[in-house]
Design a protein around this nucleic acid. Structure first.
Length: 497
RNA sequence: GCCCCCAUCGUCUAGGGGACCAGGACGUGGCCCUUUCAAGGCCAAGACCGGAGUUCGAAUCUCCGUGGGGGCACCA
């Protein structure tokens, strides 16, 4: 047991949260953050919360929340509290908690840690150009006066009063002390003029009231960490443990991966940064999890195969890597192939069926199950199935006559091979792979050519392609009638050349 | 422009002062196996960003530089 002792084992159960904004589909960066939060919660025997950060009504997308939940679930990430499963701290949709946020904002106004600001957009714009930001115009208004203006209906926001002197120091679990001069921080907005809280306020109020112990989130939040810490401190709350994950860089390593990069990545390459796309392309959640877990985290210098259950055992915040990682899809394919080979045959059959159907074929389950052993280790994604197994189900194949000519054989020699193969297969009562193998091996000896040379035209004849699953089994599944018919057709094609 | 973070093979990483002329994995090249393609096995090439310190000793600690990244909204 001591072997596995980590800082997590000895600490109390953690309460963590994944708090996406419903502005788009779940992508790798978000999924990885969710994963790490989930793993950490499980590792410590704590809870994971899902909270929807939708205080920006302008960017709200109604479908996004369901999409998000769907992708997360598909990956196998679970949460103990959330908008869909409820929980003690309901609601978990931030916009529904706005009253609470407002209350806390005004508590800060009362304690003079915040104040009302009446500047309009125009004023702010000029301040931006002349002063490089908000100039503190309303910072020193008399509170009573400000209250009167607000009560008379004048539009206003609530701003946090950041100290002008000194600096803030915040501790990040992975990066240590981070100190920023207060001069860098302007009096940021807490409550918008529509009465909705800004993220900084809402998230801190929710984190505190929901009992969050560790904030594990992306590095893009690091610059606002001082604000968050200041808020927590102004309320007199104890800060959670802050842990900022590195960003994921897009393939090629130039720049942070972002939602806008989806276009050049998908379709053509069969890759995408969106979980939902990956799913459509026929990837396995197990593979994606294994791959994502290793982008920014590692257990040691040799183990790299992990199931999500393994990760729940071994994950630790301490082994997180603070430097950015570049997304590498070739490694995803590697893990995908591995997990594909681990799948029970029935699941492979069920997985590839829709992809075959999508190409207009009508595969039956029994045949599918016989084919799976032949193609399973050759598949990367389910989407690869049509190219490996499509010819089993199509009515006929149309080989390129040039492909029917084996390497180092000319046309008439290849024709000769096909005709011999036809005769010896026709002589068999049925095409059991053992008897096919025996027949063709002895035929190749008789003809004095290599087995590979003999098989090549046959392979093309029956599958229509140069590369196929192992041939003897293929012929058995295809059956005598179809096999002979396709060879006959190939012979005809070659003769016409 | 200002602020912050990061820095080991092409990529993901191990490494927390001597165990490192730096280990593993993906990818790449070669060989083996072989019925094409895979899978598998073996081998190879391939990195501590630079410069000053600290130290008997630095990939590991400090500083400066450089490079990369992130952030500067009544977005999250």
């Amino acid at each position: 047991m001591w072997l596995f002792a980590t800082e997590n084992m000895s600490s109390d159960p953690a309460r963590v949260r994944f708090a996406p904004s419903p502005t788009g589909y779940l992508h790798l960066g978000g999924a990885r953050t969710a994963l790490y939060n989930f793993l950490f919660a499980r590792q410590t025997g704590g809870q994971m919360l899902l909270r929807i950060e939708d205080t920006d009504r302008k960017r709200f997308q109604s479908a996004a929340q369901e999409q998000l939940i769907d992708s997360l679930r598909w990956l196998g990430i679970r949460w103990d509290e959330g908008p869909d499963v409820g929980g003690e701290f309901y609601p978990y949709i931030q916009s529904e908690r706005a009253d609470l946020h407002r209350e806390y904002a005004y508590e800060l106004v009362k304690s003079e840690n915040a104040y009302l600001c009446f500047c309009d957009t125009n004023q702010l714009q000029t301040q931006q150009t002349t002063h490089g930001g908000y100039d503190g115009h309303c910072r020193h208004l008399a509170p009573s006066n400000a209250r009167k203006r607000a009560e008379s209906g004048e539009q206003h926001v609530v701003r946090f009063r950041t100290p002008k002197q000194g600096s803030v120091t915040v501790h990040d679990f992975l990066r240590g002390e981070i100190t920023v001069g207060n001069a860098q921080l302007e009096d940021f907005i807490l409550l918008k003029s529509d009465g909705f809280p800004v993220y900084h306020l809402a998230a801190m109020v929710d984190d505190h009231t929901m009992g969050i112990t560790h904030v594990i989130r992306g590095e893009e939040w690091l610059p606002s960490l001082p604000k968050h810490a200041m808020l927590m401190r102004a309320f007199g709350w104890t800060e959670p443990i802050w842990c900022h994950l590195s960003v994921l860089k897009k393939p090629g390593g130039k720049g942070k991966m972002s939602k806008r990069d989806s276009q050049p990545l998908d379709k053509t390459s069969g890759h995408s940064i969106f979980i939902d796309d990956l799913r459509k392309f026929g990837y396995l959640p197990e593979a994606i999890i294994n791959w994502m877990a290793l982008m920014g985290w590692s257990l040691d210098d040799h183990q790299e195969d992990f199931t999500i259950a393994d990760l729940q055992q071994t994950f630790s915040l301490k082994k997180l890597n603070p430097s950015p990682a570049t997304v590498d899809f070739s490694k995803l394919d590697y893990f995908q192939g591995k997990h594909m080979r681990l799948l029970p045959a029935g699941e492979v059959a069920a997985g590839i069926k829709p992809y075959l159907q999508h190409t207009g074929l009508d595969p039956d389950d029994a045949t599918l199950l016989r084919i799976v052993p032949l193609i399973q280790e050759r598949l990367i994604t389910f989407d690869d199935a049509p190219k490996w197994a499509g010819f089993f189900f199509s009515a006929n194949v149309s080989p390129d006559p040039a492909d029917l000519i084996a390497k180092k054989l000319n046309q008439s020699e290849s024709l000769d091979v096909l005709q011999h193969v036809y005769r010896s297969l026709a002589a068999l009562p049925s095409l059991k792979h053992e008897s096919v193998e025996q027949a063709l091996r002895s035929l190749s000896e008789r003809l004095g050519i290599k087995l590979g040379q003999l098989l090549s035209p046959v392979r093309v004849a029956v599958s229509g392609q140069r590369v196929s699953p192992p041939l003897f089994n293929t012929l058995e599944i295809l059956g005598k009638q179809v096999t002979l018919q396709r060879i006959k057709n190939a012979i005809k094609l070659l003769k016409e050349q």
